[in-house]
Design a protein around this nucleic acid. Sequence first.
DNA 1: GAAGGTTAGTACGCTATGGTACAGAGAGGT
DNA 2: ACCTCTCTGTACCATAGCGTACTAACCTTC
Lengths: 249, 249
Amino acid sequence: MTMPAAPKPASPRQNHLLDALPKAELEHLCTDLELVPLPLGKVLYESGEGLSHVYFPTTAIVSLLYVMENGASAEIAVVGNEGIVGIALFMGGETMPNRAVVQSAGQAYRLKGPVLKSEFARFGGRRHSSLQPLLLRYTMALLTQMAQTAVCNRHHTIDQQLCRWLLLSLDRLPSNELEMTQELIANMLGVRREGVTEAAGRLQSAGLIRYSRGHISVLDRPGLEARVCECYEVVRREFQRLLPSRPIA
Amino acid sequence: MTMPAAPKPASPRQNHLLDALPKAELEHLCTDLELVPLPLGKVLYESGEGLSHVYFPTTAIVSLLYVMENGASAEIAVVGNEGIVGIALFMGGETMPNRAVVQSAGQAYRLKGPVLKSEFARFGGRRHSSLQPLLLRYTMALLTQMAQTAVCNRHHTIDQQLCRWLLLSLDRLPSNELEMTQELIANMLGVRREGVTEAAGRLQSAGLIRYSRGHISVLDRPGLEARVCECYEVVRREFQRLLPSRPIA
DNA sequence: GAAGGTTAGTACGCTATGGTACAGAGAGGT
DNA sequence: ACCTCTCTGTACCATAGCGTACTAACCTTC
């Protein structure tokens, strides 16, 4: 069951990582958490650019993209309310050769880099932080998502990849509606826009979705799950296993 | 300059991660490091299987593969003397949905899981361990390699991918010779064996490599670099940036 | 040196996807 | 109501890579 559609007050607990923290620790962070709107298309960081903040999405979805020299792009991973944007900050290295762009508008809590770093390192000191193991497990799940993206890109059809993409997005949204043009989906998947049109047309004919000018209604989620490749389930299971506080679906 | 081909005595310092540790810390680990041979094809861990050890390759190269339900496979990343096999052990989660298989025979130092974990966690205590930040930065580099694999799978031709694969392997070997059948390369790249035959044939006609029954001699490395897609350089630069102790090339 | 296995090369048709061009269908402004 | 812009649908050809079948080199072993 997804939650009721009533406009809920924003709370850090809408992000599963923050929600998984012990009460005291979350409250400790709360003073530094800043709620920010993430409009569609906003670039949180650019390839190779240092990050000033990390973002814990609540209702927004962020795509990690690689943009090639010739301008073509491909989605590497997607981050919603189950995760955090900006792992390079606590993993070290400061930057990544990717771009993080808002794929579905919404909100996120952001935290200044130094605050996160000090909290992350506060491990084994007087007080045991549970943030570090949590973030590391999340990173593992992200790793799996990237690995599976590579596999999917190699072996699966656009139809299957579109199903995977829709399901991954759906899992990170409160409703069955998403605002997304075919053009943008094509950018994410790294395929032609026409390819998405055809694939989406097939899904629509099958009665699984309804598409109209940037708005997708998912009518038959089980139908999508029946068509998707194994990649989706592998990723979903891994997130659930590593971050069991709450199934991401 | 690659090192002279003389058979050197094995040393943990042949692995760049171990080599990057301060002397005292390496010596502390040395009692637990165990040199093991890694024959071609050996499976270090299976998808979803718990790991008892981590491996620091010195002369071996290990591939991380995803094996699909139908048996087809795709390489996710490759680990040589610049890295470590078994990051799930310190990242948490214990397992990964991949298989780690020896792609080029050689040696590695292995370390019992619990030893690594305790050393990894010995951070912020009385003594600051430099192992943790090192391994986390390595994980970031691995992340980039996976991301770039996804991009490469999406956008680049078999020829380009073969070049990338050869260069990545070359960077992890002391010589310009590799033992590798086209069949195996095809498994790694997740393409048909015939596709590799044709791509390799083109490289051979161009005088860049010589291929003969499982043995490849790279004759013209700059030639390969001229044909490879940007993915190779992105990964190489990222490894160099994050693990600057020694360029992996 | 003959036999059998492994590795590599070649050929042919098929399909998914890319490149390109253009037409239709909504939405929004004036 | 009309124009215009954005988004979607369709069509056509080109091509990279797949599936399959077969042949040709080469290596090993008897």
